[in-house]
Nucleic acid binder design. Structure first.
Length: 470
RNA sequence: GGUGGAUUGGCCGAGAGGCUAGGCAGCGGCCUGCAAAGCCGUCCACGCGGGUUCGAAUCCCGCAUCCACCUCCA
């Protein structure tokens, strides 16, 4: 039983065989830190976090590199538009926002997170190799730009299965110093008015890197000239990934063996993006919901599908996830101990191995929840515990185990202790009222608590309370 | 014009020739003082038109609609 992944370049599912046994190298295109993270960025990072967790679970030693694009047209433009903030200050401020949002969602830090500005020498060396091999040229217009020569690279278009001649040739595009409209910038010559801090010296003049070259340079710098998996959002397939592939292969690198592309997040059937102005920002959504529920929601569609962020999505995800945690809480009460992780069921493994079919894996969790609840109803505690152990194992793989350290943010605060004591007393009062069949008084306590967002559940062993389903 | 992808029940969302996921919501029941939670049952499906087949949501052909990308984007 091996892992199968959908390789965008082949356009088919392929059995995953790493270059080195038991080791996997993954490069993921991270964000351009030009503005605050939105839900789409979170989903993308989450997809590769889940891939990494699954590969790790299956015994692979995973090296995950996710870059930070901290020098780019937009970074410079946005900093200039804002006024006094330096471009590097903006980039760093945004990078911190991204890191915070990732951490809030339980997305593990990558093995390494290189910044583009820290690999300029490698980019320059790569561009020199391309010039030497005749695949790149310095623009004839004295701009200092360097372009990749797409016409001299016969396989250009192979990633996205396009014939360059059929591409919409942006009729009004300014050729500048290009030989062909499809040639793309490896290097952008320094322009008057651009900050000196964004001006690096090269054999062909000062300037800054183009967008695509950084990923080729950093992927091979950290993962080698050939590595296993390259991932990123579907909207990066062209031009970004096509150009990465072209320049890396033209320079003689083997580059990525598998290309993965995650689906986008849509609102009302339309892609969420910075340029469309329909972004739902990570910070807003994290403020409006439990982070673990948001993680469940963003992981609940297959990674290649478009995920529609509809109005009631969070409430539905909360209800669904409460069903899982509700069962675990029942088991913990019955067993008077916290359940630990066991082995994942074979059906779950098969789903995950099949191109990371997490929706199918979640269905396995709910099947287990149902049978586990039945066991509890029938008083078969030991069986319920072993089911719960399997569920915790699956939740661990998905980063959704509410008992895992990254989610453990309650219980020790003074306010939580005070709440616990108050609730104990109120439940006692309610029980006394019920014992004397004073149901009006008992229900008043329950109604008051419900108004405060606290739910009471009566069980054969006494009443339990929960806040927001936890 | 080119390249990919999608259309599944009230909603979300898997599957991929016969076994008709899962969740949310709804309805009926069990349980409960009443609830809640849980369990059982239940309603509601595969965009349209053809074709192949004993059998098609699934394969083939055509059509429609939508989405993404074609050098700013996760």
């Amino acid at each position: 039983m091996s892992i199968r992944l959908f390789d965008s370049k082949e356009g088919a599912l392929r059995a995953f065989v790493p270059l080195e046994p038991n080791r996997v190298s993954v490069y993921v295109c991270g964000p351009t830190v030009q503005s605050s993270p939105h839900v789409g960025h979170l989903r993308s990072a989450l997809v590769y976090d889940l891939l990494r967790r699954w590969l790790t679970h299956e015994g692979y030693d995973v090296t995950l590199v996710r870059n930070v694009t901290d020098i780019d047209d937009k970074v410079l433009d946005n900093a200039a538009a804002a006024g006094i903030e330096k471009w590097w200050a903006l980039a760093y401020r945004m990078e911190l926002e991204f890191s915070q949002a990732y951490a809030a969602l339980g997305i593990l830090p990558p093995t390494y997170e290189p910044r583009a500005t820290a690999s300029i020498p490698e980019m320059i060396a790569l561009i020199e190799r391309l010039i030497d091999r005749g695949h790149a040229y310095v623009a004839a217009d004295d701009s200092g730009d360097v372009y990749f020569d797409t016409r001299r690279w016969p396989s250009y278009g192979s990633l996205t299965h396009q014939n360059p001649d059929d591409m919409d040739a942006a009729a009004d595009a300014d050729l500048r110093g290009k030989n062909d409209a499809r040639d793309f910038a490896l290097w952008k010559g320094h322009k008057v008015g651009e900050p000196d801090s964004a001006n690096w010296t090269t054999p062909w003049g000062g300037g800054r890197p183009g967008w695509h070259i950084e990923c080729s340079a950093m992927a091979t710098k950290y993962l080698g000239s050939s590595f296993d998996i390259h991932g990123g959002g579907l909207d990066l397939r062209f031009p970004h990934h096509e150009n990465e592939l072209a320049q890396s292969e033209a320079a003689g690198d083997g580059f990525a063996q598998y290309w993965l592309h995650n689906g986008l997040v849509s609102i009302g059937g339309q892609k969420m993006s910075k340029s469309l102005g329909n972004s739902v920002f990570a910070a807003d959504l994290l403020a409006a919901s439990d982070a673990i529920v948001l993680r469940y929601l963003l992981g609940s569609a297959h990674y290649r599908s478009t995920l529609e962020l509809h109005e009631t999505a969070i409430a539905e995800a909360q209800a669904a996830f409460d069903r899982i945690t509700g069962f675990l809480a029942r088991v913990n009460r019955s067993a008077a101990a916290d359940v630990v992780a066991g082995q994942v069921p074979e059906a779950f493994r098969e789903a995950m191995n099949d191109d990371l079919n997490i929706p199918q894996g979640i269905a396995v969790i709910f099947d287990e929840v149902r049978s586990g609840n039945t066991m509890l109803d029938d008083g078969m505690i030991a069986k319920a515990v072993s089911i719960a152990e399997r569920i915790v194992a699956m939740l661990d793989v998905l980063g959704l185990n509410p008992g895992a350290p990254e989610w453990n943010n309650t219980g020790t605060q003074p306010s939580a202790v005070a709440l616990e004591l108050l609730l104990e007393q109120l439940l006692l009062n309610r029980q006394e009222a019920r014992d004397t069949r004073d149901f009006a008084a008992a229900d008043k306590i329950r109604d008051n608590l419900a108004a405060a967002g606290i739910t009471i559940e009566d069980t054969p062993t006494g009443a339990h309370w929960s806040l927001h389903g936890r």
